[in-house]
Computed example of a mutant assay.
Amino acid sequence: MQYKDYYKTLGVSRTASQEEIKRTYRKLARKYHPDVSKEPNAEARFKEINEANEVLKDAEKRATYDALGSNWRAGEDFRPPPGADGWRNFDFNTGGASGEYSDFFSSIFGRAFRSEGRGPGRQRGQDQTITIAIELEDSHQGATRQLKLDLPETGPNGQSTTRSRTLNVRIPAGVIQGRQIRLTGQGAPGRHGGPAGDLYLEIEFKPHRLFTPDGRDIQLRLPVAPWEAALGATVQVPTLGGSVNLKIPPGSQSGRKLRLKGRGLPGTPPGDEIVQLEIVIPPAETEAAREFYQRMAEQLPFDPRARLGV
Rank of each mutant, 00 (worst) to 15 (best):
R111A: 04
E153I: 14
G119V: 06
R179D: 13
I21L: 14
P213Q: 05
L220S: 01
Q236H: 13
G185Q: 07
E116P: 05
K4T: 04
G125D: 10
P82V: 15
E51S: 01
N53G: 02
A188E: 08
I171T: 06
R145K: 15
L210E: 10
L201Q: 02
I132W: 09
T131E: 15
A97G: 14
P82C: 02
W87M: 02
K8W: 02
T129Q: 13
R216N: 07
Q18Y: 14
K31T: 15
L147M: 14
G75H: 08
A42V: 00
V12K: 13
I130W: 06
Y293V: 11
S102V: 02
W227I: 06
E278I: 05
Q180F: 02
Q180S: 14
P304Y: 10
Q186A: 13
L260C: 05
E204K: 02
R163M: 05
G185T: 14
P282C: 06
K247L: 09
E100T: 07
E39W: 02
P207D: 02
G255V: 11
G187R: 11
P250K: 09
H192A: 15
S243D: 15
N93I: 06
R256C: 09
A288L: 08
Q126K: 15
P304I: 08
Q146R: 13
L240I: 09
R122M: 14
P120Q: 13
S254M: 07
E60T: 05
R73Q: 14
V237P: 09
K261N: 12
M296V: 15
D217W: 05
K148H: 14
D272N: 13
S252R: 05
A196S: 15
E60D: 01
Y25D: 10
A233F: 06
G155V: 12
V55K: 03
T162F: 10
R122C: 10
L258R: 11
T24P: 14
V55Y: 01
P80I: 02
Q2V: 03
F104W: 00
W87R: 03
A297C: 05
G95W: 03
N50W: 02
A29T: 11
A59S: 10
F109Q: 03
P249L: 06
R290F: 00
V280E: 07
R45G: 01
G158S: 10
E273C: 07
A97Q: 07
F113Y: 13
Q141K: 12
L222E: 02
F92R: 10
P120E: 12
G251L: 11
R165E: 10
S107Q: 08
E51L: 00
L10H: 05
I132K: 07
G241E: 14
E60K: 04
T166Y: 04
Y7E: 00
R62K: 08
G271E: 00
G264H: 11
S254W: 05
P223W: 01
R111D: 00
D217F: 03
Y25G: 11
W227F: 07
G193D: 03
E285K: 15
D85Y: 00
L220W: 00
L265S: 07
L147C: 09
A84L: 00
V310G: 10
S98Q: 04
P152T: 11
G271K: 05
H208A: 08
E228S: 13
A133G: 12
P304R: 09
F292S: 07
G95V: 04
